[in-house]
Amino acid sequence: MPSGLIKKYKEKQALSRLKRKDKEVFISAYDKYGSEINRFIYYKVGKREEANDLTSQVFLKTWEHIQNKSLIKTNTIRALFYRIARNIVIDYYRQKSSETSEEISLDSDDNHIDIEDMASGENSSIDSIDRKSERELIESKLYFLKEDYREIIVMRFVNDLSPDEIAEISGKSKGNVRVLIHRSLKALRDLVSDEMKEKEDRLNKESEADTEKNKENDKEDDKGKNKKNNS
């Protein structure tokens, strides 16, 4: 408990210094959380370049808030960056929707993002799934999830945020966050399991087809041999 209290106190200390435009604290916070925020945004938007651009915006926006003394109230610097990142992604979606004149619902089950920068560099398709590892499969299925579910999975399991931190960032209660974690994990597991089952069925079918083909080939070979013998 004492170490937890000390950690909390240090966080408060860093946040206070940040509010007072402490350059050193800001840059060290960037070094510490920069790649984490980038990864968070990447799994939200699915595009590397967009993710990089939005990450820069997050830190510039944070500094702007410090200048204007309009910082969002949070307990830690980490939570502050995440909240600003979420807001920036929302703004990005809004801008995108106005460009495409389509409504993008953040809670829609059909919110599927086309991933341009997968590990294999290909769009997800049934053929490419055959060649993907489990990890890649999971990564691909992540984008089929609802926005809320995807966000929570990335925060909890990819970026290792605690349920308390997630509650502070998302503005939800701790209980609600725990329920969401459970549901999102289940939803992802169902997607992945369905995919794996399909793959298995396909493989079985293919192997059956191959077996039958081989049998036919064997029959033909036998017929041919018999003919030869008779002649």
């Binding site: 350059k23 840059i27 799994y43 510039l60 500094w63």
Partner: peptide, 30 residues
């Protein structure tokens, strides 16, 4: 999936950009 990291070049460039921005707008060492 934690292995998904941005480029080091991008991080460095962004850091320089931030430092410049901070220094120009009153950031100081306390």
């Amino acid at each position: 999936l934690k292995n998904e990291q941005p480029d080091n070049d991008f991080l460095k460039e962004n850091r320089e950009l931030l430092l410049t921005q901070i220094s120009n707008s009153g950031g100081e060492k306390i």
